[in-house]
Design a protein around this nucleic acid. Structure first.
Lengths: 214, 214
DNA sequence: TGTCCATGTTGCCGATGTCCACATCATGTG
DNA sequence: CACATGATGTGGACATCGGCAACATGGACA
């Protein structure tokens, strides 16, 4: 938000404490991640450049190495942010929908979550791809992240009797794969040239087949 | 822009070792692509490095610029090779299966194609990701490539009466998205840590749900 | 034979990731 | 209250890479 108005190189000298103290404590790490997220938004993982991030943050390169082991470490942080934002959007979308006990809203919620997943991928392609391309291996928390949201909705389907309990195992992976694949193919595959209308129709078809096959 | 009548475009690399003393005719372009494909196999698109490719091919860097506009151009060539190899594997797999007129083999062929798709992605992750990450926009030939193979099999399903004709439109996108998403999630998502046995089971479940929902 | 163009080479530039030595600042201990 | 100490930021240096430019060479064709 606040642009680094003083990009003077000789800040190390005695200066007004209000200006120079800014990045000298605490917030550099967060500021660098913010900048890196912006870079990822603009151009994907390849656009996340350590030196440029430091420059834009108003700090010398190498300052980043006090907070991140290397570039991959920063990328992993961006990935976590991306995942969190995706999850939040899905949760927000769910919060807009009624959660009754009958089956109809339950499957509507599943479709809405899937649609929101794709919508996020298309709205934030750089952040989306970075989120998945640079995820840390240990970030596979079972109930967390976008996967957790999907699992919750599928559990609702079982609770409302729409989905037989014996078919619940594996349903999450199938749903996730279908929706994720559609998003990826839209971003980098031949589905990228689809007009929005056609894309929406294809997504509708996918979601319908998906629920039918669950 | 102006391509002045390339004389020796095709390769004469099977000319014997005597002709391979110098790269002064014909095969440099193909040799560079070969090396780049090896790089992609080993480490994905990021591992495709122009200078290193030229070095390994026994040629100075910048020699590559006589055959490729820039790195992205080389990458696109690698992508085409990857797509071709994926398509070939799918076709080979299909050739092993009987193509009767009754429905059972038809859906078996669909499952086999999907399994082969994932198998290739897991066996050649670098080439697979490069194939999709660096595809040229104009390479969306409708009946060609892996997509064409899938379409053919789906047409068989219609011909054998397994799939109602009115449900044929869009079925290709759904199938492709599901299988592609599964592959991608295995490669870079949380599905990567699945044991092979579990992964196979999940893929079986996905294929089953997929056919059921078609 | 001699010219011309395709192909390959060396040189160079700017940018990047990463390591190293040094400067600075806050803090706690004598 | 001075001083050592660890955390944090700075500048310099190195290797590598993508890409442009000028130069060299060798074959094809007049």
């Amino acid at each position: 938000m606040d642009t680094p108005a003083r990009k003077v190189d000789t800040v190390n000298m005695l200066e007004g404490p209000s200006a120079a103290r800014r990045y000298h404590h605490g917030n550099l790490r967060a500021a660098l991640i913010d900048t890196a997220v912006d870079q990822a938004r603009a151009g994907g993982a390849d656009a996340v450049v350590l030196r440029d991030a430091a420059r834009r943050t108003g700090v010398s390169h190498n300052a980043a190495y006090r907070h991140f082991a290397d570039r991959d470490d920063l990328l992993a942080e961006v990935s976590e942010r991306g995942m969190a934002e995706l999850e939040q959007r899905m949760r927000d979308r769910l919060a807009d929908l009624p959660q009754d006990d009958n089956g109809e809203p339950a499957s509507a919620r599943l479709r809405a979550v899937g649609r929101e997943y794709v919508r996020f991928a298309l709205a934030e392609p750089g952040l989306f791809t970075t989120a998945f391309a640079c995820a840390r291996p240990e970030d596979g928390a079972p109930g967390e992240g976008p996967y957790g949201v999907l699992s919750t909705v599928l559990d609702e389907l079982v609770a409302t009797g729409v989905l037989p309990a014996e078919r619940r195992p594996g349903a999450d992976v199938t749903c996730w794969a279908a929706v994720h694949g559609f998003a990826v193919l839209c971003l980098q595959g031949p589905l990228g040239e689809l007009a929005e209308r056609e894309r929406e129709a294809q997504l509708d078809g996918l979601l319908e087949r998906l629920s039918r096959g669950l």
